[in-house]
């Protein structure tokens, strides 16, 4: 059984279709990346998985259980963490409070988890009392990822973690994503930065106008001339 499976998923905003018959699966332990241009439906896919959006038809299965109509706070409790587009740090809460929010549904001592996040992102440890809104973009992204880890998700949804960040920071964040996977968290990564995402991922899907137009092993996609033309900025070789 796949950890996550989307079956013939249709999502609409009013009358406008955002996803049209999407089929996608993520196996335990994988990094799967979802590529596509702006407006292709990548963010909608993640939002539907975590319950912020509900399908018009089709199914979202998490560990075999249909979660299409489940509210976001209950999807989280099932083991899905979501790092939203634009990071969405609580701007007027400290770094520490933001992390505590990530563990909102858990009881007991959070110290070990907080220390774990600080070991992944030492800069957050130095800024623990600082308000989230005052952090740099890269630090906010680290905080958003750390916050999502606080709930011990089995599946982590990452929505464009590289957006607006300097290349060195992107590199550091991608290294951390690899490390998070090696510690046992399955990852579904939405990216526009196709090369880096495919280098990191096991498999990939390409979304265009709400439909999956291509999928396969990351190495194959990386070598595919159509992908190289559309997302890697190369002209197709003939």
């Amino acid at each position: 059984m796949s950890l996550l499976q989307l079956v013939d998923l249709e999502v609409r905003y009013g009358a406008i279709p955002a996803l049209r018959g999407v089929n996608l699966s993520v196996e335990t332990g994988e990094i799967v990346t979802l590529l596509g241009a702006n407006g292709a439906g990548k963010t909608t896919t993640l939002r539907t998985i975590s319950g912020l959006q509900h399908p018009a038809s089709g199914r979202v299965l998490f560990e075999g259980r249909a979660i299409g109509d489940v509210a976001p706070h209950d999807v989280l409790a099932l083991g899905v963490g979501h790092v939203p587009e634009g990071r969405r740090i609580f701007p007027q809460m400290s770094v520490l409070e933001n992390l505590e929010m990530g563990a909102y549904r858990r009881r007991g001592n959070l110290r070990e988890d907080v220390e774990h996040v600080f070991s992944l992102f030492p800069v957050l440890g130095q800024r623990r009392r600082q308000e989230g809104g005052t952090l740099s973009g890269g630090e906010q992204q680290m905080l958003a990822i750390g916050r999502a880890l606080m709930s011990h998700p089995r599946l982590l949804l990452l929505d464009e973690p590289s957006m607006g960040l300097a290349p060195l920071v992107v590199k550091a964040i991608f290294e951390i994503i690899a490390r998070i996977r090696s510690q046992g968290t399955t990852i579904l990564l939405v990216e526009q930065n196709a090369t880096q995402a495919l280098q990191l991922a096991d498999r990939g899907y390409v979304l265009e106008n709400g439909e999956i137009v291509m999928s396969g092993a990351a190495t194959d996609l990386l070598g595919d001339p159509r992908i190289r033309a559309a997302y890697l900025g190369e002209t197709a070789a003939h």
Binding site: P72, L76, F90, Q92, M93, M101, Y104
Partner: peptide
């Protein structure tokens, strides 16, 4: 904390399990 999180960003608060 739940009140403040909802006030600052309700949607994200729901992603945190609120």
């Amino acid at each position: 904390k739940g009140i403040r999180a909802v006030a600052q960003d309700a949607e994200t608060a729901s992603l945190m399990g609120v």
